[in-house]
Design a protein around this nucleic acid. Sequence first.
DNA 1: GTTCCGCATGAATCGATAG
DNA 2: ACTATCGATTCATGCGGAA
Lengths: 287, 287
Amino acid sequence: MFELDTILKGDCLTELKTLPDSCIDLIFTSPPYADNRKKTYKGIPIQDYVNWFLPISGELKRVLKNDGTFILNIKERTENGERQTYVLELILEMKKQGWLWTEEYIWHKKNCYPGKWPNRFRDAWERCLQFNKQKSFRMYQEAVMVPIGDWSKKRLAKLSETDLIRDESKVGSGFGKNISNWLGKEYVYPTNVLHLPTECANRGHSASFPVSLPTWFIKLFSLEGDAVLDPFIGSGTTAIACLNLKRHYIGIEAMDHYYQLVQDTIKEWRDNNNSKPEKVDLWSLLK
Amino acid sequence: MFELDTILKGDCLTELKTLPDSCIDLIFTSPPYADNRKKTYKGIPIQDYVNWFLPISGELKRVLKNDGTFILNIKERTENGERQTYVLELILEMKKQGWLWTEEYIWHKKNCYPGKWPNRFRDAWERCLQFNKQKSFRMYQEAVMVPIGDWSKKRLAKLSETDLIRDESKVGSGFGKNISNWLGKEYVYPTNVLHLPTECANRGHSASFPVSLPTWFIKLFSLEGDAVLDPFIGSGTTAIACLNLKRHYIGIEAMDHYYQLVQDTIKEWRDNNNSKPEKVDLWSLLK
DNA sequence: GTTCCGCATGAATCGATAG
DNA sequence: ACTATCGATTCATGCGGAA
């Protein structure tokens, strides 16, 4: 028996080793970013980051189904005026580990951190790296299609005046032409650029990413009843996305504070949705 | 005498070697992508790409002023269902060459190519990698400011008491704000995500990027009268941006077809703008 | 119940100052 | 010289309470 819809408390690598082989449909996670400041939330020193992560990604490869997908949300910090390269090195090393680097999605953070510096602008994007075990994997593109009605309403309303200038769109007529192409279609496929705001004041506890981010990937790479793993579940955003979408979640969290927070968050969700936890065995899905 | 506002015809590396040291304020280029446009342009085999580019980036480093900037617009292709890694490897190798990797801007292509594939969505972004020779470089942020968002109209219409003083963050993030500083503000600094449409047929030849792309970086990293180099000028988009912005351009192009195309494009621009070419010596700018 | 409006928040980064 | 700490800077959003 391996109970689904649970949060495992403990060290990520240790807990991963308790999972069976090839049992997970989708892994979505945002690991702690490299950070030299020791007092903050378990920062991994930049120079150790790749070696710290590789054993974990090795286990992730073991537990993922052959046609499953691993989405890694990450962004490298600046240090000494330069972007650091540990994410690039990680991609190269994970390929040596046998992962295929299928795609890089961009999360465009519409409300990014403010600030002003002499040598750079505000950082408004993060990487969502897609890794797979084999060339053919399951992908449900229809699940994330955008209704053209909503899109045109929102987009056109927003594009009025300032947005056109902001985007330096000199081809207003061209834009209109594009829209006429969409007329008559009900849904369109999205691109590999996601425009999502960050969630700031979320019940006093801020998540590092909005629930809409895992939601998008969970819809795209899994079906109802599938098993989704987040080995650094943090404040539990991935679990909430799974609950909303009727996927089974497995989370791992090492820190007391966040472990408690996830439990509370999930309980609150269940209270609000009249949902009772049911015991489901991971093994029962694998037959 | 080294004449500015010219296109050098010939092999990129060979022509670069004729340039003096530390004479260029900004380099902006979009090199031929690996194995891309094989029929119309010499495609570089993927496995040779880094070794092909490194001698060129070495020369670029030599000709760039110490406080100048190099912007490399590039995106890795997919092959065999995977994103290729030569761009990642190139960044790592250029750092070994002495370049600083200062920032990675995202060009979000608002109207990217249509298409549908079973394993990926349309690719709507490219990398604009910023490299520098030293930590401190010239940057003219005011030149690319954008109108403030619509939120400000509501938000700043009526200020509360806390808005009028500096309101320190309660959670010690170090982030406080004084809303009243924003009164009357019409323009704000942009982020590192650029939303630009692609330009379609230009004189029947598709440029790899719209003129708005080099325009943005030329405004940001150079002043009027500065020298801008594009070692793979292709259809001449960078030259047109320079003409519009009163910067001096130097372009390099190996292929007859594109060399002729640039000449025609520039001539057409001059005809339309009543502009006569003037002989300006690069050396005269270096004193 | 809906809409409106005020408010705190954010995976930030740099330069100066202190040890 | 090298590292640790601290203050300054700044924009767009979701949330909650009020209308």
